[in-house]
Computed example of a mutant assay.
Amino acid sequence: MVAVDHDAARPQLRAVREAVFIREQGVPAGIEIDDLDPRCRHVLARDRHGRPIGTARLAPDGRIGRMAVLPEWRGHGVGSALLHALLRIARGQGLSRVNLHAQAGAIDFYRRHGFVPVGPPFMEAGIEHQAMAQRLDRPVEVHDRAGAVAATVAVVAAARRRLWIHSRALDPGLYDHRRVLAALRRFATGGHGPQVRVLLHDALAAQRAHAPLIALGQRLPSVFAFREVEDPVDRDCPSALVANDAGGYFLRPLGHRFDGETEHHARARARQLSAGIDEVWERARSCSELRALSL
């Protein structure tokens, strides 16, 4: 994944964009090719033979666009690599905010990378789109269950090898949501020695509710570890958290609510929060009853 000069790489950029936007999606060439290109920062993905397989651009005002990956390379992490490269460039330029117009089918992809919808859907070039944005200078506010699900999925999806979950009783409506469970399952079965520490306040309540995350942990006991807080001071902590080892977190000051804040490139803050869980973890008791094959 490399940043490229527009003029030097124009044939390769055009090859990918014409294949995806013009031939595959039917976007008119007059719309796809514009005067903004020379003023944008471009990133290009190539295969091991040096052939272009994906590209995207960042406009001076922080607008991400022209995200295109050849069909045979979709689902292999190329799009995520392109997006992360542009976000690094944006932060390097000191931008406080980036935005984009996501095609309807790509909204979940951008949600997983920390973008939130802005306004209603609209039509652009004959295709339904959704405006989305991400703050780079401060946490993004989360206000409702949909936002909480999106923020949790994004933190889990970006994890490298470790996740920390702090919850009162595995939050019905959040950790039993199909998208959250699917993200946790992908992380847990993705190899590279994944580890998930789940710190609970009320293990019995989660057990009685037949929380699906417990069942997932039973199937993957080498990945998931469950403990319950015992110290009265720890039990008085009202917050809930999911954090990863890549600088992402979603913190809810009141754990029984869905609202909170999330960031995806805040390594110092994420380390501080996960270290706090580790401290409580050492004082907590192991939930051996959650290892049972039957609830």
Rank of each mutant, 00 (worst) to 15 (best):
V116Y: 04
D108N: 08
A243H: 13
A246F: 06
A158Y: 00
S222M: 06
R135T: 06
R235I: 00
R91C: 06
G30K: 07
L58R: 06
G105A: 08
H76E: 09
Q207M: 14
G147Q: 10
V223C: 09
E18C: 01
H166G: 09
I277T: 12
W73Q: 12
G191H: 07
L174A: 04
G75S: 07
R10K: 09
R291K: 08
G147V: 04
H166D: 07
A19G: 06
A3L: 11
L200V: 04
S96N: 12
L295A: 14
D236S: 15
D234V: 01
H192G: 09
A9H: 01
I214E: 05
A270S: 13
A209E: 13
V142C: 08
L290G: 04
P38S: 04
G79H: 04
G77L: 10
P60F: 00
G255P: 05
M67Y: 01
F187T: 03
D61S: 13
H166Y: 12
L83W: 07
A240H: 05
R135C: 10
V69F: 06
I64S: 09
A209R: 13
R197C: 05
A151M: 03
E230S: 07
L199E: 07
L295N: 12
R252Q: 05
R197F: 03
D144K: 08
A151L: 02
Q93E: 15
L83H: 09
L36T: 05
P232N: 02
Y110I: 01
R178Q: 12
W281F: 07
H166K: 14
L204F: 06
W281L: 12
A131V: 02
R10G: 00
R219H: 11
